[in-house]
Design a protein around this nucleic acid. Sequence first.
RNA 1: GGGUAGGUUGAGCAGGUGGUGAGCUCCGCUGACUGUAGAUCAGCCGUCUUCGACUGUGGGGGUUCGAUUCCCUCCCUGCCCA
Length: 403
Amino acid sequence: MTASPVRAETTRPLSFETLVPAPADGSTQARLGRLTTPHGTVDTPMFMPVGTNATVKALDPDDLAEVGAQIILANTYHLYLRPGHERIARLGGLHRFMGWERPILTDSGGFQVVSLGDLRVIDDDGATFRSHLDGSTHRFTPEHSIAVQEALGPDIAVAFDQPVPPHASTRAQVAEATERTHRWAERSLAAHGRADQALFGIIQGGLEADLRAESTQAIAALPFDGLCIGGLAGDETPAQRAAALDVVVPLLADDPRPRYLMGLGSPGDMLDAVHRGVDLFDSVLPARVARNGTLWTPEGRLNLRNARFQDDPAPVQADCACRLCRHHSRAYLAHLFRADELLAYRLATCHNLTYCLDFMARIRAAIAAGTLPDLVRDQPAGRATEDPARPPARDTQAGAKGG
RNA sequence: GGGUAGGUUGAGCAGGUGGUGAGCUCCGCUGACUGUAGAUCAGCCGUCUUCGACUGUGGGGGUUCGAUUCCCUCCCUGCCCA
């Protein structure tokens, strides 16, 4: 049976326009698109920086705009716990609260179903969490997650789901979580009523091709505004991830909605996923590794905590326009990290997000030019360790200077 | 000059009143991180032929089967008194 749309298509708070469709010759599934939300447009493929606590750690909205962010992700569970969704609603909603007037998407709290591990119990109705802040008990159901997201007021809300870590689960567990996610998707949809907010559904299915296909069809049959692909970006191999995408995307070939692969964030991983038909990404990875000292460059990653950078006068990346590379040397950033200076986190985060978003811009340009397959071919294909952001590259032994 | 408390692996310490001191925290070195319980975590951090072995408690000497420990002496440091 087909679920009936909760709202007429013409009043959708979000539209997705395909500017350059995937070529008919099948050389790539990549396409160029534009998402229109109440707070502005988003060019796709696009990467969304993660701002769990209504802040992308270490950055302010001006920094975000400067690095090229068009949309960011915030987290329902964290903001529900602190400062509280009702307080944010009273203060004018998430956009006004954090001073970011461009698009926002909230994760439903589904990820915390897995990430909080021991602190939660799942049943068919929902999940019970123990707060990581004070140990108090909280109940999340699809209805509650939607209510919290309506109060927060992002442009895009996401259905409450149960992700499954593939390698820690049996097929039966994957099947159970996937079917539960489908029931929760329908309940999320039924609970959602805010007309100026879009709602995305989440496909699960783990690494089992038949379960993935089943989940794709189940979620795509519902009147969501966009389709998330969940349960990846975990401990699967790149080949397994590719296989899963190659099950999902063909089933959505004629579906006009955006496709969002949740949690993926390394440039090489994203390039491969775009090639296989994904439009949106999010990840903490570039920001987290930046805070921990790792800077991404076209030549590979640099760990600015390494001794060899203490005398290196070069910018992290010569042709990068970020505020770090414009104004400062590797030596300076290395110093800031050693001194535990807060500026290190801001500058490093600015750089990695700039790198990521520039990378996506190059991908979009390649799609527009019809050269994406070339870009994919030029990347060292295959394993994640050969990601453009990863290869240790050639070691520029900067420490050898004797004088 | 007298008194007193001390000198432990880069720094700061713990321990140890006759038999096993390589234990901690910094610093330092390296790695990890993908819908953020993460400005975090992990490994290493005296030497070597590194699954083990050796050396090491300020210097020198003594007692003893055996000394970081007890004795003598010297050096150095903090504090107090002259």
